[in-house]
Amino acid sequence: MLAVRQNSIPRHRARLGVAATGAAVTVAVPLTLPADGGSSSVDRAIAEPLHSAWITRSGICEALVLPSNGYLLIPVLVLASAWFAHHGDRRRAVTMAVVPELAVAINTWLLKPLWGRQLHDYLAYPSGHTVHLVAIATAFMLLAGAPHARYAVCAVASMALAATATGMIGLDYHHPTDILGGAAAAITMVTLLCWAAESLPHWHSTARTSRLGT
């Protein structure tokens, strides 16, 4: 037990460093925005060329945003939770199912009203679709013990996020900085929530019986 705890100290420190960096980005981005919450110079530099590109008139952007839709992300979340359950780790299965949705709830009810950045008729910062996508991918990568599974999810999630960001900006659903803040907020929340879950009693004894690290 002592060895397990000692080995986990560097990992926890690394995760707290990641969480702190993500939190700093989440807080810093609104400081760069104009007082009315409109487009920043960074937003315009990224969005204006994309709005004039052919893909915004071809229907491609509508397809690009699909990976961020709940009707696709919820089944992915269920499959990820089932993957842990199949490997005999019920604690990680529950954590996988709960943490991303809790991050979405915190973003919706706390972070969005806190910054109050209005776009059209909704609060845009941090981007909720981005939070959902990144939260699911981050939770899996933090909880999985098999390196090949983490690398595969990281690659797929990165491509999905790039596609989604292009589509949301092209369709004027979000400013680029909304997406940056959403990704940073999701990484921060999920890292801290998973750390809290791992701090619960009996986590380490459960983890030792799991085959996920083999």
Rank of each mutant, 00 (worst) to 15 (best):
W115A: 04
L119D: 01
I55N: 05
A163L: 15
H148S: 14
C61M: 15
V4H: 01
L16G: 02
A93N: 09
A165F: 08
T191Y: 01
H148T: 13
A155Y: 09
A97S: 07
H51F: 08
H12I: 10
L192A: 04
R91D: 12
A23F: 09
R15F: 01
L143M: 09
L73G: 10
Y125K: 03
I169T: 08
A53F: 07
D178C: 03
A28F: 13
S205Q: 15
L16A: 13
I60N: 03
L114Y: 04
T95G: 15
H132G: 06
A124W: 00
Q6H: 08
M168A: 12
L161P: 00
L64V: 06
G70I: 09
P100C: 09
G181R: 01
E48Q: 11
D172V: 11
L110D: 00
L2R: 11
L64C: 03
T206M: 12
S210E: 13
T138K: 00
A85V: 07
V29G: 05
R91F: 15
T138A: 15
W54F: 10
A103P: 01
A139M: 09
P67A: 06
W203I: 07
H12D: 13
S68I: 08
E62G: 13
S39Q: 11
P113C: 13
V18R: 03
R90G: 15
Y125P: 02
A207W: 02
I9E: 04
A184E: 10
I74L: 14
E198H: 00
G59H: 08
R92V: 06
A28L: 15
S210C: 12
Y125Q: 00
C154T: 10
L119N: 09
P67C: 12
T108Y: 09
E198T: 06
A124D: 04
L77D: 02
L73K: 08
H86T: 14
T138E: 06
